[in-house]
Design a protein around this nucleic acid. Structure first.
Lengths: 125, 125
DNA sequence: CATATTTATCGGTAAATACCGATAAACCGG
DNA sequence: CCGGTTTATCGGTATTTACCGATAAATATG
Protein backbone atom coordinates (compact mmCIF):
# COMPACT_ATOMS: atom_id res chain seq x y z
CA UNK A 1 0.00 0.00 0.00
CA UNK A 2 2.11 2.85 1.40
CA UNK A 3 1.45 5.47 -1.26
CA UNK A 4 4.33 7.75 -0.44
CA UNK A 5 7.15 8.99 -2.54
CA UNK A 6 10.46 7.36 -1.88
CA UNK A 7 11.90 10.81 -1.33
CA UNK A 8 9.87 11.17 1.83
CA UNK A 9 7.26 13.63 0.68
CA UNK A 10 4.25 14.24 2.88
CA UNK A 11 1.30 12.02 2.11
CA UNK A 12 -0.68 15.10 1.14
CA UNK A 13 -0.92 13.91 -2.45
CA UNK A 14 -1.72 17.17 -4.17
CA UNK A 15 -2.60 20.80 -3.86
CA UNK A 16 -6.27 20.01 -4.47
CA UNK A 17 -7.39 19.08 -0.98
CA UNK A 18 -10.61 17.66 -2.29
CA UNK A 19 -10.59 14.72 0.07
CA UNK A 20 -9.93 15.40 3.75
CA UNK A 21 -8.00 12.26 4.65
CA UNK A 22 -10.64 9.69 3.89
CA UNK A 23 -9.08 8.84 0.58
CA UNK A 24 -6.99 6.06 2.02
CA UNK A 25 -9.81 4.80 4.18
CA UNK A 26 -12.18 4.74 1.23
CA UNK A 27 -9.57 2.89 -0.77
CA UNK A 28 -9.44 0.26 1.95
CA UNK A 29 -13.20 -0.14 1.78
CA UNK A 30 -13.29 -0.43 -2.00
CA UNK A 31 -10.37 -2.80 -2.09
CA UNK A 32 -12.09 -4.96 0.51
CA UNK A 33 -15.09 -5.17 -1.80
CA UNK A 34 -12.85 -5.91 -4.76
CA UNK A 35 -12.76 -9.68 -4.52
CA UNK A 36 -15.42 -12.05 -5.85
CA UNK A 37 -15.54 -14.13 -2.67
CA UNK A 38 -15.99 -11.06 -0.53
CA UNK A 39 -18.67 -9.70 -2.82
CA UNK A 40 -20.42 -13.02 -2.48
CA UNK A 41 -20.20 -12.77 1.28
CA UNK A 42 -21.60 -9.26 1.23
CA UNK A 43 -24.49 -10.39 -0.95
CA UNK A 44 -25.26 -13.28 1.35
CA UNK A 45 -25.29 -10.99 4.38
CA UNK A 46 -27.42 -8.46 2.52
CA UNK A 47 -30.07 -11.02 1.62
CA UNK A 48 -30.03 -13.10 4.79
CA UNK A 49 -29.48 -10.36 7.31
CA UNK A 50 -26.92 -12.39 9.22
CA UNK A 51 -24.87 -15.52 8.78
CA UNK A 52 -22.68 -17.74 10.90
CA UNK A 53 -19.17 -18.17 9.69
CA UNK A 54 -19.86 -21.81 8.97
CA UNK A 55 -22.74 -21.00 6.67
CA UNK A 56 -20.51 -18.76 4.64
CA UNK A 57 -17.84 -21.42 4.47
CA UNK A 58 -20.42 -23.83 3.06
CA UNK A 59 -21.31 -21.28 0.41
CA UNK A 60 -17.85 -20.76 -0.95
CA UNK A 61 -15.34 -23.10 -2.61
CA UNK A 62 -12.72 -22.12 -0.07
CA UNK A 63 -11.50 -23.70 3.13
CA UNK A 64 -12.53 -22.33 6.50
CA UNK A 65 -9.30 -20.52 7.26
CA UNK A 66 -9.40 -18.66 3.97
CA UNK A 67 -13.01 -17.61 4.49
CA UNK A 68 -12.14 -16.46 7.97
CA UNK A 69 -9.48 -14.23 6.50
CA UNK A 70 -11.86 -12.75 3.98
CA UNK A 71 -14.23 -12.01 6.84
CA UNK A 72 -11.39 -10.30 8.64
CA UNK A 73 -10.66 -8.10 5.65
CA UNK A 74 -14.30 -7.03 5.51
CA UNK A 75 -14.37 -6.47 9.26
CA UNK A 76 -11.17 -4.42 9.20
CA UNK A 77 -12.74 -2.25 6.53
CA UNK A 78 -15.75 -1.84 8.82
CA UNK A 79 -18.04 -3.28 6.19
CA UNK A 80 -19.31 -6.00 8.49
CA UNK A 81 -19.62 -6.62 12.20
CA UNK A 82 -19.25 -9.87 14.00
CA UNK A 83 -20.68 -11.03 17.29
CA UNK A 84 -19.88 -14.15 19.20
CA UNK A 85 -22.75 -16.54 19.74
CA UNK A 86 -21.74 -19.56 21.70
CA UNK A 87 -18.96 -21.29 19.84
CA UNK A 88 -19.96 -19.55 16.62
CA UNK A 89 -19.51 -16.09 15.14
CA UNK A 90 -22.43 -14.29 13.61
CA UNK A 91 -21.80 -11.65 11.00
CA UNK A 92 -23.94 -8.88 9.63
CA UNK A 93 -23.46 -5.88 7.36
CA UNK A 94 -22.49 -2.45 8.55
CA UNK A 95 -24.85 -0.52 6.34
CA UNK A 96 -23.25 2.82 7.14
CA UNK A 97 -19.92 2.02 5.59
CA UNK A 98 -21.59 0.50 2.61
CA UNK A 99 -23.58 3.67 2.20
CA UNK A 100 -20.44 5.78 2.39
CA UNK A 101 -18.96 3.86 -0.48
CA UNK A 102 -22.14 4.03 -2.49
CA UNK A 103 -22.39 7.77 -1.93
CA UNK A 104 -18.79 8.31 -2.95
CA UNK A 105 -19.32 6.55 -6.26
CA UNK A 106 -22.55 8.40 -6.78
CA UNK A 107 -20.76 11.72 -6.23
CA UNK A 108 -18.19 10.83 -8.83
CA UNK A 109 -20.84 10.25 -11.47
CA UNK A 110 -22.84 13.31 -10.52
CA UNK A 111 -19.82 15.58 -10.47
CA UNK A 112 -18.73 14.13 -13.75
CA UNK A 113 -22.07 14.89 -15.40
CA UNK A 114 -21.89 18.47 -14.19
CA UNK A 115 -18.34 18.84 -15.48
CA UNK A 116 -19.40 17.34 -18.76
CA UNK A 117 -22.23 19.84 -19.25
CA UNK A 118 -19.93 22.64 -18.25
CA UNK A 119 -17.25 21.71 -20.75
CA UNK A 120 -19.84 21.27 -23.48
CA UNK A 121 -20.97 24.84 -22.92
CA UNK A 122 -17.39 25.86 -23.08
CA UNK A 123 -16.97 24.36 -26.49
CA UNK A 124 -19.78 26.53 -27.80
CA UNK A 125 -18.29 29.79 -26.59
CA UNK B 1 -6.60 -13.50 -8.19
CA UNK B 2 -7.79 -16.88 -9.48
CA UNK B 3 -10.55 -17.67 -6.99
CA UNK B 4 -10.75 -21.38 -7.63
CA UNK B 5 -10.28 -24.31 -5.39
CA UNK B 6 -7.06 -26.17 -5.76
CA UNK B 7 -9.07 -29.32 -6.17
CA UNK B 8 -10.36 -28.03 -9.48
CA UNK B 9 -13.91 -27.19 -8.50
CA UNK B 10 -16.01 -25.21 -10.94
CA UNK B 11 -15.87 -21.48 -10.42
CA UNK B 12 -19.59 -21.52 -9.77
CA UNK B 13 -19.00 -20.48 -6.18
CA UNK B 14 -22.32 -21.51 -4.69
CA UNK B 15 -25.78 -22.77 -5.18
CA UNK B 16 -27.17 -19.25 -4.82
CA UNK B 17 -26.77 -18.00 -8.38
CA UNK B 18 -27.49 -14.48 -7.32
CA UNK B 19 -24.87 -12.97 -9.59
CA UNK B 20 -24.78 -14.13 -13.19
CA UNK B 21 -21.07 -13.97 -13.90
CA UNK B 22 -20.46 -10.31 -13.27
CA UNK B 23 -19.05 -10.97 -9.84
CA UNK B 24 -15.49 -11.17 -11.03
CA UNK B 25 -15.89 -8.22 -13.33
CA UNK B 26 -17.39 -6.14 -10.57
CA UNK B 27 -14.54 -7.15 -8.33
CA UNK B 28 -12.10 -5.88 -10.92
CA UNK B 29 -13.89 -2.55 -11.01
CA UNK B 30 -13.96 -2.18 -7.24
CA UNK B 31 -10.38 -3.24 -6.84
CA UNK B 32 -9.37 -0.71 -9.48
CA UNK B 33 -11.05 1.96 -7.38
CA UNK B 34 -9.38 0.67 -4.24
CA UNK B 35 -6.21 2.71 -4.33
CA UNK B 36 -5.84 6.29 -3.11
CA UNK B 37 -3.98 7.45 -6.20
CA UNK B 38 -6.60 6.01 -8.48
CA UNK B 39 -9.40 7.53 -6.44
CA UNK B 40 -7.62 10.84 -6.78
CA UNK B 41 -7.45 10.37 -10.53
CA UNK B 42 -11.13 9.54 -10.70
CA UNK B 43 -11.98 12.64 -8.69
CA UNK B 44 -9.88 14.83 -10.94
CA UNK B 45 -11.55 13.44 -14.03
CA UNK B 46 -14.97 13.83 -12.43
CA UNK B 47 -14.41 17.50 -11.64
CA UNK B 48 -12.45 18.53 -14.72
CA UNK B 49 -14.22 16.40 -17.28
CA UNK B 50 -10.97 15.41 -18.94
CA UNK B 51 -7.27 15.50 -18.23
CA UNK B 52 -4.07 14.88 -20.10
CA UNK B 53 -1.84 12.26 -18.63
CA UNK B 54 0.73 14.92 -17.82
CA UNK B 55 -1.73 16.92 -15.75
CA UNK B 56 -2.46 13.87 -13.67
CA UNK B 57 1.23 13.19 -13.21
CA UNK B 58 1.67 16.74 -11.89
CA UNK B 59 -1.13 16.14 -9.41
CA UNK B 60 0.32 13.04 -7.82
CA UNK B 61 3.52 12.35 -5.92
CA UNK B 62 4.39 9.55 -8.32
CA UNK B 63 6.57 9.33 -11.37
CA UNK B 64 5.11 9.27 -14.84
CA UNK B 65 5.50 5.56 -15.44
CA UNK B 66 3.68 4.71 -12.25
CA UNK B 67 0.82 7.05 -13.05
CA UNK B 68 0.62 5.56 -16.50
CA UNK B 69 0.18 2.16 -14.92
CA UNK B 70 -2.57 3.39 -12.64
CA UNK B 71 -4.32 4.81 -15.67
CA UNK B 72 -4.00 1.45 -17.34
CA UNK B 73 -5.61 -0.28 -14.39
CA UNK B 74 -8.55 2.11 -14.55
CA UNK B 75 -8.79 1.72 -18.30
CA UNK B 76 -8.68 -2.08 -18.11
CA UNK B 77 -11.54 -1.92 -15.64
CA UNK B 78 -13.42 0.24 -18.14
CA UNK B 79 -13.70 3.02 -15.63
CA UNK B 80 -12.02 5.55 -17.90
CA UNK B 81 -11.43 6.01 -21.61
CA UNK B 82 -8.39 7.49 -23.26
CA UNK B 83 -8.05 9.19 -26.60
CA UNK B 84 -4.87 10.24 -28.33
CA UNK B 85 -4.50 13.94 -28.97
CA UNK B 86 -1.29 14.74 -30.75
CA UNK B 87 1.55 13.49 -28.62
CA UNK B 88 -0.66 13.44 -25.55
CA UNK B 89 -3.35 11.17 -24.18
CA UNK B 90 -6.58 12.60 -22.93
CA UNK B 91 -8.60 10.69 -20.37
CA UNK B 92 -12.18 10.94 -19.28
CA UNK B 93 -14.53 8.93 -17.08
CA UNK B 94 -16.73 6.15 -18.33
CA UNK B 95 -19.79 7.09 -16.37
CA UNK B 96 -21.59 3.85 -17.18
CA UNK B 97 -19.19 1.61 -15.36
CA UNK B 98 -19.08 3.96 -12.45
CA UNK B 99 -22.83 3.83 -12.33
CA UNK B 100 -22.82 0.05 -12.37
CA UNK B 101 -20.60 0.00 -9.32
CA UNK B 102 -22.68 2.61 -7.55
CA UNK B 103 -25.87 0.68 -8.26
CA UNK B 104 -24.37 -2.55 -7.00
CA UNK B 105 -23.44 -1.01 -3.68
CA UNK B 106 -26.82 0.62 -3.47
CA UNK B 107 -28.50 -2.72 -4.00
CA UNK B 108 -26.51 -4.24 -1.18
CA UNK B 109 -27.71 -1.62 1.26
CA UNK B 110 -31.29 -1.73 0.04
CA UNK B 111 -31.45 -5.51 0.12
CA UNK B 112 -29.90 -5.46 3.54
CA UNK B 113 -32.53 -3.09 4.90
CA UNK B 114 -35.26 -5.32 3.52
CA UNK B 115 -33.69 -8.40 5.06
CA UNK B 116 -33.34 -6.56 8.35
CA UNK B 117 -37.03 -5.67 8.46
CA UNK B 118 -37.95 -9.17 7.42
CA UNK B 119 -35.93 -10.82 10.13
CA UNK B 120 -37.33 -8.41 12.70
CA UNK B 121 -40.83 -9.55 11.79
CA UNK B 122 -39.64 -13.06 12.07
CA UNK B 123 -38.57 -12.51 15.62
CA UNK B 124 -42.06 -11.46 16.53
CA UNK B 125 -43.71 -14.55 15.14
C1' DC C 1 -13.83 -34.26 32.63
C1' DA C 2 -13.10 -36.00 27.72
C1' DT C 3 -14.64 -35.12 23.16
C1' DA C 4 -16.59 -32.78 19.41
C1' DT C 5 -17.65 -28.37 17.10
C1' DT C 6 -16.62 -23.90 15.67
C1' DT C 7 -13.66 -20.27 14.58
C1' DA C 8 -9.34 -17.34 14.58
C1' DT C 9 -4.64 -17.20 13.88
C1' DC C 10 0.05 -18.77 12.52
C1' DG C 11 3.43 -20.50 9.07
C1' DG C 12 4.50 -21.03 4.48
C1' DT C 13 4.25 -20.49 -0.66
C1' DA C 14 2.90 -18.73 -5.10
C1' DA C 15 1.11 -14.98 -7.42
C1' DA C 16 -0.15 -10.22 -7.86
C1' DT C 17 0.69 -5.30 -7.01
C1' DA C 18 3.12 -0.92 -6.50
C1' DC C 19 6.79 1.49 -7.44
C1' DC C 20 10.92 3.13 -9.87
C1' DG C 21 14.33 3.96 -13.77
C1' DA C 22 15.28 3.22 -18.55
C1' DT C 23 13.83 2.96 -23.05
C1' DA C 24 10.96 3.05 -27.16
C1' DA C 25 7.34 5.07 -30.04
C1' DA C 26 4.70 8.86 -31.69
C1' DC C 27 4.45 13.48 -32.53
C1' DC C 28 5.65 18.51 -33.03
C1' DG C 29 8.63 22.69 -34.04
C1' DG C 30 12.26 24.46 -36.12
C1' DC D 1 15.43 15.67 -40.74
C1' DC D 2 16.76 16.54 -35.71
C1' DG D 3 16.01 17.60 -30.90
C1' DG D 4 12.35 18.15 -27.49
C1' DT D 5 7.72 16.47 -25.53
C1' DT D 6 4.72 13.20 -24.17
C1' DT D 7 3.32 8.73 -23.04
C1' DA D 8 3.39 3.52 -22.87
C1' DT D 9 5.88 -0.40 -21.87
C1' DC D 10 9.75 -3.27 -20.08
C1' DG D 11 12.85 -4.95 -16.36
C1' DG D 12 13.59 -5.35 -11.66
C1' DT D 13 12.61 -5.25 -6.61
C1' DA D 14 9.95 -5.00 -2.39
C1' DT D 15 5.59 -5.55 -0.45
C1' DT D 16 1.02 -7.41 -0.22
C1' DT D 17 -2.43 -10.78 -1.17
C1' DA D 18 -4.67 -15.26 -1.60
C1' DC D 19 -4.63 -19.58 -0.45
C1' DC D 20 -3.82 -23.80 2.20
C1' DG D 21 -2.83 -26.92 6.29
C1' DA D 22 -2.05 -27.11 11.15
C1' DT D 23 -3.01 -25.56 15.53
C1' DA D 24 -5.03 -23.15 19.45
C1' DA D 25 -8.96 -21.21 22.01
C1' DA D 26 -13.60 -21.25 23.27
C1' DT D 27 -17.77 -23.56 23.93
C1' DA D 28 -20.99 -27.18 24.02
C1' DT D 29 -22.33 -32.14 24.96
C1' DG D 30 -22.09 -36.66 26.75
Amino acid sequence: MSFETTTGNPVNLAASDQSPSSDCEMAVVLRALGHPARLQIMRALASKGRCFCGEIVDMLPLVQSTVSQHLKVLKDANLIEGTIDGPRSCYRLNTEKLNDASVLLGQLTVTSEAASVCSTNHDLT
